[in-house]
Amino acid sequence: MTTPVQQPVTSVWSMYRAIVGIGALCALLIVSVFKATEGRIADNRARFLASAVAEILPEAQWTLAVAVDASGALVEASEGAALPGYLGFDADGNIVGAVITGIGMGYADNIRLLYAYSFELDAITGFKILESKETPGLGDRVEVEPHFLASFDRLDASLSPGGDALANAIVTVKQGEKVAPWQIDGITGATITSEAIGRILDVSASVWVPALERDAAAFAGRQPHEEEQ
């Protein structure tokens, strides 16, 4: 019927101008916002860690990130270690305990948690879930169930005579059947999650506790170094 309306041909130059121009503006915007928020985001992350540490290791005034290297020795952690541990110091530089990150499969997805180790008691004295997707109302009861948490008043993690392994594997038992200090009193209805917590702690503590007991003393007397910025 009618000839199709001729679209004015857009020149390649104007297309480049638009794409590159907008790209440059956007890049500028992103970089400036990144710079503006960088400090606050780092602060938030540090505060989040500090509040988690304060919750399970309240005696610590400040912490030093550490890691276990390939030979099993305790070393100061480099920036961005996958599963860092933290030595907790009081104001005089005495080591008051350690906080360690553990990870393992729960019911729905990986559970990531922090737990506190006490050198004095040779025991795990608390934990905090950092990330979990466990069923609300069932699996997430591990954070609130009193009898389950009671196991962490002093969960034995003492070393075997050789000093290179736990004397007794940490294990979650059926609710009400805890008889030994290295057992966790499980939760009926959250069997899988409560067992997963026991397994994560056992795997992680088997590596960390020997290293901590052997090498941590070398870090005693440290003072928090001032941030050089």
Binding site: Q7, T10, S14, M15, R17, A18, I19, G21, I22, G23, C26, A27, L29, I30
Partner: peptide, 17 residues
């Protein structure tokens, strides 16, 4: 400023920013 042919690229770029 945005030509018709390149509009989706430009919109997505703006939105993503």
């Amino acid at each position: 400023f945005i030509p018709r042919e390149a509009r989706i690229v430009c919109y997505i770029c703006i939105i993503a920013s």
